[in-house]
Design a protein around this nucleic acid. Structure first.
Lengths: 168, 168
DNA sequence: ACATTTTTTTAGGTTAGCCTAACTTTGTAA
DNA sequence: TTACAAAGTTAGGCTAACCTAAAAAAATGT
């Protein structure tokens, strides 16, 4: 079995940040990592030593930083969790962009694989099923904004629906 | 402003556990806390001292433990987050009981107030709107199990729906 | 080429949260 | 009541993650 590396939240954040910097700036520098993570540069040096020990980054002191294959795999997994969560928060729960971003940052470390995949399926389902799409979401938005709901209207609707074969 | 106490994940877990023990056993004992949290009893002693310093529990060495009003308020908030998340995982995403329980344990520390309330509204909406209820969920279950979906059927359905006033 | 600025590292310190092992207190049963 | 078991505390240690300040290396402008 591929030796698991014991990834802390902190390590996940470093890897995610390095991946983002590689993408944005071609190369990751300690200073930029410190800036994005909101930690001191001294802390970054320590963290880089550990990431290197864990085989997650290529790194020699005073040189630039790149992810190893192993590191990139983890970084991408974290990023994927982030993006899926953000998608759900923004496009299903209708949380604002910035708040969804922040919430995704916190939750990405706590969500497990199975939940994530199920969430992804859920989002896809809503997006590809017209019945659960725009119209349906607009109705949800009205619901949480007004805290009111008229089941009568739903019933009128559902009665029509039961005439059809809805198992899709 | 009511002085905020800086609540770590660990502290949240202690409070949540103490509340559960109060509920289950009338009273919380250090041994049971250790057992439920999977830590050593020595660790519990240290944690209890800190919880007391923070004004979250009533506690004298060698005596039983109760939550203060402040502690109970936080414990209940954590429990509420747990229950709402579990409800969503189990009844919307259809994750199994045990896995939903574990996932909720991890995520309850990461979710923010706004997201939680929105999630609650979402669950309520699904539960109280027949159109988004059982039938709809069954269709989602089929979707994630088969990874297939027939938008044609949806379209047939949505065409009927647009004849009605669906804003509910 | 050299001085200055920027970046990075090093060294030493703090805190939270856990551990173990040894000791103390409490409760119970003979 | 005394002696033992169970529960709780204390003391000392460890690690992860952060901090600051100062030293070292690299990059830059003239």
């Amino acid at each position: 079995m591929g030796e698991t590396v014991n990834i802390s939240e902190s390590v996940e954040n470093y890897l995610e940040t390095i991946l983002a910097l590689e993408t944005d700036n071609k190369v990751a520098r300690a200073k930029d990592i410190a800036e994005r993570l909101g930690v001191q540069k001294g802390s970054v040096s320590g963290a880089l030593r550990i990431l290197k020990e864990k085989g997650l980054i290529n790194y020699k002191p005073y040189s630039f930083i790149t992810l190893t294959a192993k590191g990139k795999k983890i970084a991408k997994s974290v990023l994927r969790r982030h993006l899926i969560l953000k998608d759900f928060l923004e496009n299903v729960l209708q949380i604002s962009d910035q708040k969804a971003e922040n919430a995704a940052c916190r939750m990405e470390h706590a969500i497990d694989e199975e939940t994530l995949e199920r969430l992804l399926a859920f989002i896809d389902y809503i997006k590809t099923c017209p019945r659960a799409g725009d119209n349906w979401l607009a109705s949800f938005v009205n619901y949480y904004k007004t805290h009111r709901h008229d089941p009568e209207k739903c019933n009128k609707c559902i009665n029509e629906l039961t005439q059809l074969d809805l198992s899709s």
